[in-house]
């Protein structure tokens, strides 16, 4: 995966935070950890992370000194739900624009986290339960998704930005046979001129490709790279913040502050 310019900050160093840190580190993004107590601080340092101690009551501003706030994505993944909610609300109080992803255990906590200003909440129990039921009901699909998620196959889901010089500009999706030519399947499109919402191509592929569209595609890694070069789009974003701010009200974030 290409190195991302974005910075990521993780609050807490419990089991969930550790797993996030481990996975995020692999993407090559700049990673900063913020913890509350000494034990976790030394543990994080021991594991080789850049970690800081922070007091959420008074030192929230410390964040802007240590990270590039305009380019930052925050995960609140503390062990205990109450602390997590408090951290979320403390961050939101100072940084109105910051994208915050919080980990909540139950549905109730998830609602509280949203009210506290989290942009997105990942519900632990719900995620696990979904995984179990999917495994039972759709074993093949689950395996496929797993392979994609766990990087166990070279199949990937990627987003491709259409730039000015793309050869497909002005063409309709069903007109150019991308599926056979490039061996990738377009799952959905975000047409930034119309709305910020994602529309699936199955609902009708009669869509004119214009500049600044985002195509969400599935395909083998090599094919995607080749297609990206061909179409002149950038794979993986450079303007995540654009996404998070401009599209804040759309499908992605339904936070209270925006």
């Amino acid at each position: 995966m290409p190195a991302s310019k974005r910075e990521i900050a993780i609050f807490g160093y419990g089991s969930y935070a550790r797993s996030i840190a481990k996975n995020v580190r692999r993407t090559g993004a700049k990673l900063t950890l913020f913890v509350m107590d000494d034990a976790l601080y030394s543990k994080a340092q021991h594991d080789g992370y850049e970690a800081y101690k922070i007091d959420m009551n008074t030192e929230v501003e410390k964040l802007s000194n240590l990270c590039d706030i305009d380019n930052l994505l925050v995960f609140c993944a503390m062990h205990d739900d109450a602390n997590n909610i408090f951290s979320t609300i403390s961050l939101r109080a100072v940084y109105q624009e910051l994208p915050i992803i919080a980990i909540g255990s139950t549905h109730e906590t998830a609602l509280k986290l949203k009210n506290a200003g989290a942009s997105k909440v990942i519900e632990k129990l719900q995620t696990v339960a979904n995984m179990i039921t999917d495994m039972i009901e759709k074993p093949v699909v689950t395996e496929l998704m797993h392979d994609i998620l766990y990087d166990e196959s070279s199949l990937k889901i990627a987003q491709i930005y259409i730039l000015e010089e793309s050869p497909y500009l002005g063409k309709f999706i069903d007109e150019v046979d991308i599926q056979t030519k490039h061996n990738i399947i377009i799952l959905g499109i975000v047409d930034r001129e119309l709305s910020m919402d994602l529309s699936f191509t199955t609902r009708g592929a009669h869509h004119c490709i214009t500049e600044s569209d985002i195509l969400v595609v599935i395909g083998y890694d090599d094919d995607i790279t080749a297609f990206k070069e061909f179409i002149g789009g950038l794979r993986d974003e450079e303007d995540w913040d654009y996404w998070s701010r401009e599209m804040g009200a759309s499908t992605l974030f339904r936070s209270e502050t925006e």
């Binding site: 995966m1 991302s4 974005r6 990521i8 089991s15 969930y16 550790r18 797993s19 996030i20 840190a21 481990k22 996975n23 995020v24 692999r26 993407t27 993004a29 994505l73 995960f75 993944a77 992803i101 980990i103 997105k120 990942i122 632990k124 995620t127 696990v128 995984m131 998704m145 994609i148 998620l149 766990y150 889901i157 990627a158 987003q159 799952l187 959905g188 975000v190 994602l198 699936f200 985002i214 969400v216 993986d236 974003e237 995540w240 996404w243 998070s244 499908t251 992605l252």
Partner: peptide
């Protein structure tokens, strides 16, 4: 659970649109 959440977080951090598709599906 931790692993799934970690992977989701990574996917989400890296490719928000793709993640959304993934999640929606």
């Amino acid at each position: 659970a931790q692993n799934i959440v970690g992977l989701l977080a990574r996917e989400f951090g890296g490719k928000p649109v793709a993640f959304e598709v993934f999640h929606a599906m």
